[in-house]
Write a protein that binds this DNA or RNA. Structure first.
Lengths: 170, 170
DNA sequence: ATATTAGGTTCTATTTTAGAACTCATTATC
DNA sequence: GATAATGAGTTCTAAAATAGAACCTAATAT
């Protein structure tokens, strides 16, 4: 299977990997959220090769996550800014940063934090259900194949499941 | 910069990319959450080469996200199961799946969904603050460098920011 | 005796990535 | 006026990762 094929996969997570499933793309987005907008800014802060950076910026622009706009003429220069679609990636960054701090600890402190815009306090991200407010994690949610109302059916079968079940409870 | 260096970066997001920043690792985890446990199960469902799959499973085990345990002897066979650390990745999957469905739409429906274990209803994931319950997104949070109480300081400066600010507000 | 299943390993060929050097237009400095 | 610096790339070669297929081993099934 090729890289490119992921972009058209029916699975949203596969498409997400087609979009940000490489070493640099997500880190470029991180820099965008930190306010970096220019080619050399990304390059110096990330240490990515100029070649790859140019390619990744093009791809992010093609995906509609960044827009390239002139910030001066003579010589013409462009900067890269998050689009609405790019900004919508923030919750993923929050969830991932929180996970990494828990599960991939480091002795050095994180070089940045997320704070609320109104109080300035550091946030403590948790994924919840929009309607019930319930916290969502492996104890409260289950991933089920979407075949024919599978959710309810599988759920109904859960109390009497066989020992080698594959419902993802473990 | 090399692949390996990311694993020791001070930035949690960089370490996360060292861990799952390739095409396959996150999809292998997805299969784990769907209940797949065996080598050939992963291989057939993902279409990943056996070579890479073996390497990725080893890496996930080394990271402590999967554990390899025998499920039969003669011939000895092992299966891979999510550890507590692996299970803690669920919220990232939720956030990422939600983002991808919004921002990388497909005409085909997703092959799986997340449902709550108690009601079986499909969930609607949203990242919130554990303490205030506030929804966290680009409008409500700001990413700030962690230098010397930067959060409060930067926040205090926000009302009078210059036009070409780099605080990540756009 | 032969085929199948399960879980890999080994091989070559292709694709990606790293790293450095080069380009081009403009502005700043000696 | 010549030289250097800035900013945003592009072009090269070498190294690394990935794809794809074939092979291996141990046991069971036909």
């Amino acid at each position: 299977m090729k890289w490119h094929d992921l972009n058209n996969d029916t699975c949203p997570l596969a498409r997400a990997m087609g979009a940000v499933g490489d070493r640099w793309t997500l880190l470029i987005l991180r820099e965008c959220f930190l306010g970096v907008r220019r080619f050399d800014g990304f390059q110096k802060r990330l240490g990515v090769t100029r070649h790859l950076l140019a390619e990744r910026l093009k791809r992010l622009e093609a995906m509609g996550m960044l827009e390239r706009r002139p910030y001066q003429e003579r010589p013409l220069r462009h900067e890269y800014r998050l689009t609405a679609s790019g900004k919508s990636f923030a919750p993923v960054l929050l969830a991932m940063q929180d996970w990494a701090q828990q599960s991939l600890p480091s002795d050095a402190p994180a070089p940045f934090t997320f704070v609320t815009r109104d109080s300035g306090d550091e946030v403590c991200p948790v994924v919840t259900d929009r309607h019930t407010g319930q916290e969502l994690n492996h104890r409260t949610v289950l991933m089920v194949p979407a075949t024919a109302a599978a959710a309810k059916v599988i759920e109904a079968n859960r109390p009497a499941q066989p020992p080698d079940t594959k419902t993802g409870s473990d």
